[in-house]
Design a binder for these strands. Structure first.
Lengths: 251, 251
DNA sequence: TCTCATTCTTGATCTGGGTCAAGGTTGCCG
DNA sequence: CGGCAACCTTGACCCAGATCAAGAATGAGA
């Protein structure tokens, strides 16, 4: 956390037309004229890995989208117990229209670029721009589903199943992002420390480490270094996660 | 589950103007003309306590609001482990526009009345009626916050804290519903069996029973029968829940 | 009033994962 | 290249909550 106090730097605004999250973010359904209105109230912010975007309880005068990088959403109890409640990947939305203060700590896990909208103007725009409010509804419903799946993981799965569940989720997402189809083998970079995994899964970091070692020992996963994961048989990993074989796909 | 297979009965439609959830449900922001459009696609359904409204995976051709009674939203693993992921009280919305199949089991915990909308017409209406889609967005954001608070409970709290958290949530909701202010003492009816509480909290029913007994023994709560709960000191209960004293109120 | 089926309570014992502790890796910076 | 700071692994032990088991309370129906 050595450089934590550093202020975020501004970037020169860039064009929505070539934005990497143009078709997945809250602006996905917008026409050109609507994009222009968003463009007027937007600005970019950069955060370094480890930097806190906002603390729970702080006044929040913007909402926005993750453009690149990864951030976590977490709650902390007074005695220090932490629970991650969201993993923010590119195109995910941060902040709640209509709310003054941040409800969670948002921390950049990697270097992070955010496309921020000034909150008040965004709220006004929301109520006049169905393309935005409907897309936001859709994204919020997806997040609610993810949160509920996660509740099953937290409430009812064993440590081993929790780890396997997390690896499948990250594996699936990174496969979708990188558009790798085909082979049942899969390689991805774990964007989380053991401690962050523990905070995600309601475990201690020691238990995470032990279970990772066990899965490795049994050939369910392979590790290069601590972060690069190979899954030789994705179905096998899903079985360890206790999920039904179809992976819970819903439309 | 003896009467489970029984079909639900239809009720004579009643007027939205005198609907008890008129000002809190998905229709809360509607003008008279919008209510009329909703009225055209709505119908009421009754369910008995214990009856299943819909099974996860079943085709769902309606969405709707709980008018009266209580229902639970739960996920089940193949081996039978269950996790409740939502508690549906009057005015809460059931179903997801744009989705074919139910993602969760919905079970009536008490006798239940639902105001249902045929799904396809409701989806069409959604995209032309900002009053509805914006209210639905707001309600979904609230549910997402509730789910995330619950994730902290599931992931990081002890059995005793979990029970105290559940009692505070139900107590607070029923106080809000009954508009009882003032005194720090509070009485309410527990709408859940010990098993349902266990499924809510990721515990076994034995642990729930033991912790209820412990809280009673220590005077944190009083019980009349198994279901009627008196909380002599709500602050004390919150302290047992491990929450900060302000109760996490957010705007 | 007397079943019988739920639902709940309590006790005894077991165990998965937490806690405490001691190193091992890795990679950055001087 | 060497030292330090993160980060990770592994071992030993312990305890909160699960599991297994036995009954007690409650209440609907005959």
């Amino acid at each position: 956390m050595g450089t934590m106090g550093m202020t975020s730097t501004r970037m020169p605004p860039h064009d929505c037309g070539e934005c990497p999250i143009r078709h997945r973010a809250v602006c996905a359904r917008c026409e050109v004229d609507e994009l222009e209105k968003l463009d007027e109230i937007k600005y970019y912010r950069n955060f370094q890995a480890g930097q806190t975007v906002i603390w729970s309880g702080d006044r929040m005068d913007f909402v926005g989208s993750v453009v690149s990088g990864i951030a976590t959403l977490a709650q902390t109890m007074e005695d220090g117990r932490r629970q991650m409640v969201g993993l923010l990947l590119p195109s995910d939305f941060v902040g709640r229209p209509g709310r003054q203060a941040a409800a969670y700590d948002v921390v950049a896990t990697s270097d992070l670029v955010m496309c921020c909208f000034r909150k008040k103007p965004f709220e006004d725009l929301l109520s006049h721009t169905p393309a935005v409010s409907q897309r936001l509804l859709e994204m919020t419903l997806d997040e609610l589903d993810a949160a509920r799946e996660w509740m099953l993981v937290l409430g009812r799965k064993t440590a081993r199943e929790k780890i396997a569940s997390l690896l499948s989720i990250i594996g699936r997402r990174s496969a979708a992002l990188n558009m790798i189809g085909g082979s049942s083998s899969m390689v991805f970079e774990l964007p989380l420390t053991r401690e962050a995994m523990a905070d995600y899964l309601g475990l201690t970091l020691e238990t995470v480490s032990r279970q990772m070692s066990a899965l490795k020992r049994e050939g369910i996963i392979q590790l290069e270094g601590k972060r690069r994961v190979t899954v030789p048989d994705f179905e096998g990993l899903l079985a360890e996660a206790g999920d039904d074989s179809d992976g819970g796909m819903l439309v």
